[in-house]
Amino acid sequence: MADRTVLFEHADHVARITLNRPERLNSFTRAMHAELRDALADLGDARVVVLTGAGRGFCAGQDLNDRAVTADSGPTDLGETVEQCWNPLVRALAELPQPVIARVNGVAAGAGASLALACDLVVAGTSARFIQSFAALGLVPDTGGSWHLARHLGQARAMGLALTGEPLNAARAAEWGLIWKCVDDEALDAEVDALAAKLAALPPLGLAATKAMIRTSWSRTLDAELDLQRDEMRRLGFTDDYREGVAAFLAKRPATFTGR
């Protein structure tokens, strides 16, 4: 396991995926992308996913050494890397039925910052920094960055972060609504573990439907959203989990959900 660039643990319906290149701030190579794709494709009975980074940082984005670009080298097709690696990753995270929690420790830069924002919930330690480092290289915020920044923050703040590359600390990111929560570094593990356990104990069908609806609501009118809410409430109201939830509430006992 020590030589793997992505580590995978699975217990109590929680899948924990750790980016494992701490000596390179968990920056991505093609091999690392392949390992992460494999992990996300085989989550077993996990009801929630935690994505984090080993060592002192979450992820520094693309490992520039993996491309062997120099001042004298010829043109490099960065679009190929985005199309083959980063775009499929963002789509996979969005399409997973399970909620994905990003546990952000230390720096999240470039595509690493965008990767964190592509998750459903971001919990960061106070030492975390989100850096849109693309402008310094003459690039644009990829890995969904321009999309998520504008929708979370609005145009003014998204533009400022993207154009200047100014680091955004975790406390300010939470204040601005870019992430779910900022906690003391010492409390980060306990906070993420508690959140993952809470989500893993909830009805998975309802969580999956909620995630899908919120992520796609931008494309619907209010009327269409109301119709979809009706349809999903009808579907979920027929499930065993809904009946178990009501029965447990009335009996004042913990509920046991089966995902059916």
Score class of each variant (00 low, 15 high):
241 D>M: 11
151 R>A: 12
68 A>N: 14
246 V>I: 11
245 G>A: 10
110 G>P: 01
196 A>V: 08
36 L>R: 00
73 S>D: 14
93 L>T: 03
42 D>F: 03
111 A>E: 08
165 G>F: 02
159 M>D: 07
201 A>M: 14
132 Q>M: 14
217 S>I: 14
240 D>E: 15
188 L>I: 13
260 R>E: 05
121 L>D: 05
256 T>K: 12
157 R>M: 12
70 T>R: 13
18 T>E: 07
144 G>V: 02
46 A>K: 02
210 T>P: 07
50 V>C: 13
196 A>I: 03
185 D>T: 00
139 L>S: 11
165 G>Y: 05
118 A>F: 03
40 L>F: 00
58 F>H: 01
50 V>T: 07
124 A>W: 05
16 R>P: 05
101 I>C: 14
36 L>Q: 00
156 A>G: 10
26 N>V: 04
20 N>I: 02
79 G>P: 09
159 M>R: 13
172 R>C: 08
198 K>I: 13
215 R>I: 12
115 L>F: 01
57 G>T: 08
107 V>D: 15
99 P>H: 06
96 L>K: 05
15 A>H: 11
86 W>Y: 04
251 A>G: 15
130 F>A: 06
145 G>F: 05
93 L>I: 04
17 I>R: 06
47 R>K: 07
195 L>N: 07
61 G>S: 06
54 A>V: 10
115 L>N: 00
98 Q>P: 10
241 D>F: 03
202 L>H: 15
144 G>N: 08
227 D>P: 12
176 W>S: 04
163 L>A: 15
188 L>F: 11
69 V>E: 09
61 G>I: 02
214 I>V: 15
162 A>C: 04
62 Q>P: 07
160 G>H: 11
53 G>E: 00
158 A>H: 05
77 D>C: 14
204 P>L: 12
81 T>V: 12
34 A>Y: 00
207 L>N: 11
183 V>M: 00
178 L>Q: 04
259 G>W: 06
57 G>I: 02
159 M>T: 13
250 L>Y: 05
191 E>I: 08
190 A>Q: 05
260 R>D: 03
46 A>Q: 04
245 G>Y: 11
249 F>K: 13
209 A>W: 05
151 R>M: 10
44 G>E: 00
248 A>M: 08
44 G>V: 11
103 R>N: 13
141 P>R: 14
1 M>Y: 09
85 C>P: 02
100 V>L: 05
147 W>E: 11
74 G>P: 06
101 I>P: 12
119 C>S: 06
190 A>K: 08
65 N>W: 09
81 T>S: 07
249 F>M: 09
226 L>N: 03
79 G>R: 07
163 L>T: 07
121 L>K: 05
110 G>K: 00
225 E>I: 11
63 D>K: 01
82 V>D: 09
79 G>W: 14
247 A>I: 06
83 E>D: 08
60 A>L: 06
48 V>W: 07
90 V>D: 04
12 D>N: 07
149 L>C: 10
6 V>M: 01
56 R>H: 09
42 D>H: 13
138 G>R: 10
21 R>G: 02
23 E>C: 01
126 T>S: 10
236 L>P: 01
108 A>W: 03
180 W>E: 14
